[in-house]
Nucleic acid binder design. Structure first.
Lengths: 328, 328
DNA sequence: ATGAAAGCGCTAACAG
DNA sequence: CTGTTAGCGCTTTCAT
């Protein structure tokens, strides 16, 4: 089925069929109906390649995820994908998935230049990843998750880490914890940095300068290892903020193994409210970031940027919520 | 940068440049070099839409995942994606992600017909989903995960469920368990069916006809609920096969709450060896299915099918392995 | 409001 | 082995 055939059936020109198909307003109502009938009887579907060739729009965007190792066991994957999908689906735009790897950056750039991709959503990019800056410089549509590590005029979506960590501090202090520590995220990630400084600042505001800090890496195993070190370093610990739920899950099993009761002996608060939070024993008190909404917003920002290249970059910061469960 | 410009720079015709770019063998070595130089100096990248228009290849395949609810908390997502990606990446084919929803089937069909997609990989399709049959009938390239629920000439990749469940039965019996039960998957899934009948048959072969069966739904909560029922129904239980690791994780916390020690009082074996297996306490003895390899194989089968439409459908069944950890 | 015609950038016969 | 030519199916001026 091509435009020509439909035109023949409807007894009009190709151009008219094209107008009807694309919903151009200036078409006679009667003709429109005739054409629409012809479209349904022929079962016509426009060829995307032909359309792309002239419109210079691929009709697809990429979602670039961190390499497999960093994504393994990460419970956000599904939420991110469904958030983006929910937005993209209605506009008929395809979501192409890429996992970061040695040659991913070049691929992305090439695909964008080949007109195979209209824009990109970058998830948890590496510190010092040159891709964001390269895209910005080439004026290619891009949105990233989390603020860029260096000042850069790029659109991004983030959660208010300061507000989130302040809630944690408040909760722990109000609970009466005396000896408080934190297992931070990796220092070479913006989320890791922001959650650490945010928590420390908030504790300081509460008059607590003696917070013990141990660095983790956002993985379950890393969380477990960090908790072991923490127990050695501060045996009298009675409250801990762990910068990700996944790490908290690992830490919790270490605590159990050491016979420390949660929350009676030690109060534990996580961050993320990912699916592992409820899988924890006891269920984890944590800070929820609305990941799905955030992902949807990234898609919206990107689509807008693709639509009109003159829109200024914008960042939207979501407010987190404290979810109180059994662990603190 | 178009072919024309490169041709002008190299002083040859468009056709020749096209041949060089596409690696056609019958090109003079000298000219090839000249053209290659021209390509790099101009930074030429072929326009995909134009190419697709004439080759009638979209250069992308879709990965259709179950709706979000069934995917939530499922640890296979990342493995499936990276398995497929690893194969697809080298061939430059794009992986388009879709989550099943009310209108997904029509979208998939339309995209295939519009030449926007070359083929489809279907993950965990619903029982009675009309899509597989529709695709087969339309002779469109498709590969699914797990055997089709009804006889259908379709390519698929599966794990040898019979062999896997036989290993579980063997392990439990050898361990000396007397009172054995199973928490099955949903009866309206082939994996659920196969693991149940496989396990029952194997137990029967060991002379055990008295296996208690409780139906689960492959979710963590479903596993927990099923274990509660099981404890009521068979309080003297000392061994249980749980048809998925995720359910086993839920079941384990129920067991802990009831003061049943694992594996001392009750031996627990799961199935999948997904990331939750090691997150269990104690770590879960389970059956590993090589999900990533299986996903890669699906991609390979699909690509082959796209390449030449005359290849017969084929199914490849992977052998599972028993992974012994702390729970049994 | 509609049609004719000119491409979009590429591949693939077909000559030469 | 290389060049010429004819489209692939669509959108979009530009006339009418």
């Amino acid at each position: 089925m091509t435009l020509d055939e439909v035109a023949r059936v409807a007894g009009v020109s190709r151009a008219t069929v094209s107008r009807v198909v694309n919903g151009v307003a200036t078409v006679d109502e009667g003709i429109r109906r005739t054409v629409e009938r012809a479209v349904t009887t022929t079962g016509y579907l426009p060829n995307r390649a032909a359309r792309s060739l002239v419109t210079r729009r691929a009709g697809s965007i990429a979602l670039v995820l961190p390499e497999q190792s960093r994504m393994m066991g990460d419970p956000f994957f599904v939420q991110i994908v469904s958030g983006v999908t929910s937005v993209v689906r209605s506009s008929g735009v395809h979501l192409v998935l890429m996992m970061a790897g040695s040659d991913t950056n070049e691929h992305v750039l090439a695909d964008l230049r080949q007109g195979r991709l209209d824009g990109v959503i970058l998830i948890y990019t590496h510190f010092d990843d040159p891709l964001p800056a390269a895209l910005v410089e080439a004026r290619l549509p891009v949105v990233m998750s989390g603020r860029p590590d260096r000042p850069l005029s790029i659109s991004y979506v983030d959660v208010n880490q300061i507000a989130g960590t302040a809630m944690v501090a408040e909760h722990l202090v109000t609970r009466g914890c005396q000896r408080i520590a934190t297992i931070s995220g990796p220092a070479d990630s913006t989320a890791g940095q922001d959650r650490l400084t945010g928590f420390l600042d908030a504790m300081f505001a509460h008059g607590r300068r003696d917070v013990v800090v141990v660095e983790g890496d956002f993985t379950r195993e890393g969380g477990a290892a960090a908790m072991e070190r923490l127990l050695l370093q501060a045996p009298d610990l009675d409250g801990v903020f762990i910068a990700s739920d996944l790490m908290a899950h690992g830490a919790l099993s270490v605590l159990r193994r050491h016979g420390r009761r949660v929350p009676e002996d030690i109060a534990v608060v996580g961050f993320d409210d990912s699916s592992v939070a409820v899988a924890c024993d006891p269920p984890l008190t944590t800070i929820r970031q609305p990941v799905e909404d955030m992902a949807a917003e990234m898609a919206r920002l990107l689509l807008r940027q693709i639509e009109r290249s003159d829109v200024p970059t914008s960042s939207v910061v979501f407010e987190p919520t404290l979810i109180v469960r059994g662990s603190a």
